[in-house]
Design a protein around this nucleic acid. Structure first.
Length: 723
DNA sequence: ATGGACAATGTTTTT
DNA sequence: CATTGTCCAT
């Protein structure tokens, strides 16, 4: 196969490894995705295995899509029929097919993190427990851990009194899930694994089907996932895993990098292949990365090397506070773009906590420069989006109590708390799901189980129930988009959410964005839509097309690469995070997180340390991150504060009341486009960064070599365009 | 039942 | 400080 020539000897060895277990330990930027895709191509093209018999699992949809795409590039249509997806999506598919063996039906809904907390709160309420003493978050973490260890409530490990209580909550939580025909994220893995464990004939079926199993980011697997993989590979034992223990950053989610060690123990005939050559970064960046990660005890030492040359030194920059830090980041990006040293899309800004994105966003907004932000929660966590999804989920599965309770009085239809409490207890007594009773009430205008409800409430509920009936009947033939349109129309959602304020308008625009998304599921249908929406990862929301800087957490950065990387907020307490101070394992993970961030950079790396940080509105002095002390000074270059003019160079103040023009109002055409060179009689030569039309004029952001960033109105400034 | 005013409380990372 | 929840008046 001629494409093998494009690989180095270690990569070739991995791709062409024979049958049996293979463990590839791949350093950052060592071409592990390439190895995985070539391996799949090799199995199909060279070993003659049909794609149907191959399973490849990843952790994000984005990674899965990328792999699918690259395999197709290598093989063309021959690649069709591969099973390639995330752990969770693959499990969901198996569970829908095998639901007959399990305590739920194939039309289960998937509950997200938010719904899970709602369920825990409900369980606490049902058991009359104090949510202050048993915070929903901590209880949920305990449940999640148990599920990762494949333990149902009966097998919940008990070590103290608190565990007894948590066990009862867990038990109630599972009952609530069962009553709603719902599964949470962890259930997807748990039930698939138990299915394989308890039904040998099912296990056999899948193990015989998947002649080859391939796994990406193996260090991120938890107990359930690892056990599942062993079942799936139990017949052929052709299991090919790729990972890097130094990039294990999800221990808090149950991931256990020691699965890499277990793998070698459980499959003693494993071929171990090391990929050390880095194709991404300059040697300076790799040297810094190694200096940081070498401090972690008990790891297999790995040398990272590249033939890309030494490259520039790593820039370390101290600012007065986090505001200035953000301003410096934005200005540096603008300067490098203006000098044509880089494109806007070549930049990424990484931080430890999501809250840190705010100042950065403000700085970009202030400079009028576009950016993109990684984070599914930002969109799917919004109230209006959750409402609409809940409506759709309810239609798909009327037993979904979480969704029912969410929307039964949204928009308000006079069904209040008291009515609902009574309704729920009546449903419990009649041993049927509240949604079922509601449907019955809608059909007959009467339900024998709901006699105790006051008349006014019954009328409101009957009307809603009747609508739900219609939607359910239509759901069969209607595509997700049309169904969503009907619901929006019939409940008059727009007038509920769009109250005329800016916020209301934005909320409605979000609904329209979801509508656009639903439009992509005309053929694939409601189930797939709901499933994809439930299982999006933050990384999946990163637009790859737009050529603008990315803002993202260090966690979300894994697997990505950028020419220029800023890591901001390098203070003790943030990175490493204060919550890990007293936990050695946690501190090691913080260090790996820093390592992941560093190794995303191809050419230039900026490490930023603000001297003060504002928390809760007050600015407080900070302590420099202890990790910085591990970097030898000769690898670093300090960038001074001297010639900065952020404060004076930007007279523009963003204004909330600034009118935005619709298409019809646009009377002029833009004259300046990003990248164009201009000459200004006073400010000299500059480069256009951004331009937009406003009030019959064109507002242009220009970076001038001599005076920095300026915002000018085209009609007033006597600028010349240069060629 | 609904909406407004005020208080408390919080910041880790996410499939 | 900025969001979220809780209480109270309508």
């Amino acid at each position: 196969m001629e494409f093998l020539e494009r690989l180095n000897p270690q990569q070739q060895q991995a791709v062409q490894a024979g049958e049996g277990p293979v463990l590839v330990l791949a350093g950052p930027g060592s071409g592990k995705t390439r190895v995985l895709t070539y391996r799949i191509a090799y199995i199909i093209g060279e070993l003659g295995v049909r794609p149907y018999h191959i399973l490849a699992v990843t952790f994000t949809n984005k990674a899965a899509q990328e792999m699918q795409h690259r395999v197709e590039q290598l093989l063309g249509p021959q690649a069709h029929g591969l099973t390639l997806g995330t752990f969770h999506a693959t499990c969901a598919r198996i569970l829908r097919r095998e639901a007959e063996h399990l305590p739920f039906t194939s039309s289960f809904v998937i509950y997200d993190a938010d719904d899970q907390l709602t369920l825990v709160r409900q369980a606490l309420d049902d058991l009359n427990l104090d949510p202050k003493r048993y915070t929903p978050q901590s209880v949920h973490a305990a449940i999640s851990n148990a599920k990762n260890e494949l333990a149902l409530p009966d097998e919940f490990p008990l070590q103290n009194y608190r565990d007894e209580v948590v066990k009862r909550i867990y038990s109630r939580y599972q009952d609530l899930l069962a009553g709603s025909n719902g599964l949470d994220f962890d259930d997807l893995l748990l039930w698939t694994t138990r299915l394989m464990q308890e039904f040998p004939e099912v296990r056999e079926k899948y193990a015989r089907r998947f002649e080859h199993v391939l796994v990406d980011e193996f260090q991120d697997t938890n107990m359930a996932q690892y056990t599942l993989l062993k079942h799936l590979a139990s017949f052929y034992r052709n299991i090919f895993v790729v990972g890097d223990t130094d990039q294990s950053i999800y221990a808090w989610r149950g991931a256990d990098y020691r699965n890499v060690l277990r793998f070698e123990r459980d499959f003693p005939d494993t071929q171990v292949i090391l990929l050390e050559q880095n194709y991404r970064s300059t040697q300076s960046i790799l040297d810094v990365a190694m200096a940081v990660i070498d401090r972690n005890p008990a790891r297999k030492p790995k040398r990272l090397f590249t033939d890309r040359g030494q490259g520039e030194k790593i820039l370390i920059h101290e600012t007065y506070d986090d505001r200035e830090e953000a301003a410096y980041v934005v200005e540096t990006i603008a300067r490098l773009v203006a000098s044509q040293a880089a494109q806007p899309g070549d930049f990424a800004v990484m931080y430890r906590t999501n809250a840190q994105s705010r100042l950065l966003e403000e700085a970009f907004l202030h400079a009028g420069l576009p950016y993109k932000l990684v984070g599914a929660q930002r969109f799917y966590g919004r109230r209006e989006i959750k409402d609409i999804i809940a409506y759709l989920r309810l239609v798909y599965n009327p037993e979904d109590e979480v969704s029912l309770l969410r929307v039964i009085n949204v928009p308000a239809r006079g069904i209040g708390e008291k009515t609902l409490a009574l309704f729920r207890s009546l449903a419990q007594k009649s041993k049927s799901a509240p949604g079922r009773l509601l449907l019955e009430l809608g059909r007959n205008n009467h339900s024998p189980h709901l006699e105790a409800l006051p008349g006014r409430a019954v009328a409101a509920m009957a009307q809603f129930g009747s609508r739900l009936n219609t939607w359910c009947a239509q759901a069969e033939e209607l595509a997700p988009l049309s169904l969503m349109d009907r619901i929006l129309e019939e409940v008059d959602y727009r007038s509920y959410i769009d109250d005329g304020t800016d916020e209301g308008r934005e909320r409605w625009e979000n609904v329209m964005e979801l509508r656009r998304l639903a439009g992509e599921y005309q053929e694939r249908g409601l189930v797939t839509f709901l499933e994809d929406v439930a299982l999006v990862s933050d990384q999946d929301t990163l637009e790859t097309s737009a050529n603008v800087p990315s803002l993202l957490t260090l966690h979300a950065a894994k697997g990505l690469e950028f020419a220029n990387v800023f890591i901001v907020g390098l203070n003790d307490g943030l990175l490493p995070h204060a919550r890990s101070f007293d936990d050695p394992e946690g501190m090691q993970e913080e260090r790996r997180l820093f390592y992941v961030g560093i190794t995303r950079a191809k050419d230039r790396l900026y490490l930023m340390t603000p001297l003060n940080r504002s928390a809760y509105g007050y600015s407080e002095p900070t302590v420099e991150s202890r990790f910085l002390k591990d970097i030898p000074v000769e690898l670093l270059e300090e960038v001074g504060l001297s010639r900065r003019r952020t404060r004076t160079s930007s007279p523009y103040r963003p204004d909330r009341w600034e009118p935005s023009l619709s298409h019809s109002q646009r009377l002029i055409e833009p004259q300046y486009s990003p990248g164009a060179k201009v000459f200004h009689p006073v400010w000299g030569e500059g480069m256009v960064l951004n331009s937009r039309l406003q009030d019959d004029d064109e507002i242009v952001d220009v970076f001038f070599a001599e005076v920095g960033l300026k915002r000018v109105a085209a009609s007033l400034a006597k600028m010349e365009r240069k060629i």
